[in-house]
């Protein structure tokens, strides 16, 4: 269960360059192609073209991590553990970008960067803290087999939060964060989904990159234990 096996036709460096190129192409479209203003949000609506893709990508990655954790629990695969951990790390990056862009946009649109009684914001903040806890927990457990097992349980549990985040507005009502944004022209909508695809491709490249880093680190730790546990050393 390695992310790189699914995308073996696309070498990782090329995948990374493609992802970055698409994200920069989105930036180009935002700067020069889409309308500069939206009727209620004026220029601040432009933040949406980076905010929305990161939000969607992080939710997808957290769900993927949850599914891979289920696989890890059923097979005990160490590589599945690394795949889930790397998916969570990249998802955490996406969630951080969502929160940062959201706070900047909120300051512009609502006059303050955060509103605690908004259910969408609150559920995303809880999601961010839980996955940060997952990442810190993994650093605290030294035994790789135990770390894999316990992380997998946490990964499955925390993935339950994802539909809660998505349906927060429908379940608990809208306070400040809207369910949708009204993009008047078809070109704005296509830029929205182009950006979503661009960011997802980049985040997939990050997932493969993080998986490689964690796999190499794990191999180095195993080899170091083997070398220094040999008699006479």
């Amino acid at each position: 269960m390695k992310p790189s096996n699914w995308l073996a036709f696309l070498p990782l460096p090329a995948h990374l360059v493609l992802g970055w190129a698409l994200v920069l192409a989105t930036l180009y479209l935002v700067c020069f192609a889409v309308p500069m203003q939206e009727e209620t949000l004026q220029e601040s609506y432009l933040i949406f073209y980076f905010h929305f893709p990161s939000a969607i990508s992080c939710l997808v990655l957290f769900v993927i991590a949850g599914l891979v954790c289920i696989y890890q629990l059923s097979t005990g695969s160490q590589r599945a553990d690394l795949a889930a951990a790397s998916a969570v790390e990249v998802g955490l990056l996406g969630c951080t970008i969502t929160l940062v862009t959201g706070m900047v946009w909120a300051k512009a649109a609502w006059g303050k960067p955060w509103i605690w009684h908004d259910k969408r914001l609150l559920t995303v903040a809880i999601m961010w803290f839980t996955y940060l806890g997952y990442y810190l927990f993994r650093m605290a457990v030294e035994n790789p087999v135990q770390r894999a097992r316990y992380s997998a349980v946490l990964g499955v549990l925390f993935a339950i939060n994802v539909p809660l985040v998505w349906f927060a507005i429908r379940l608990f009502g809208q306070v400040s964060h809207p369910m949708t944004i009204n993009l008047q022209s078809p070109f704005m909508k296509s830029t929205q989904w182009f950006g979503a695809l661009a960011f997802f491709i980049l985040y997939l490249a990050f997932w493969r990159l993080r998986y490689r880093a964690l796999a190499l680190k794990s191999d180095a730790e195993w080899l170091e234990e083997t070398v220094f546990s040999q008699p006479g050393r």
Binding site: I97, A108, F206, L209, A213
Partner: peptide, 28 residues
């Protein structure tokens, strides 16, 4: 004028993405 907020948001995003890339490549 919200242009400052737009540039701040985009700048922070690109910096975070670049730092993540460099951090992972350094780890590898």
């Amino acid at each position: 004028d919200f242009r400052f907020h737009v540039w701040l948001a985009y700048g922070l995003v690109l910096v975070l993405l670049a730092l993540f890339t460099l951090w992972t490549v350094a780890q590898i």
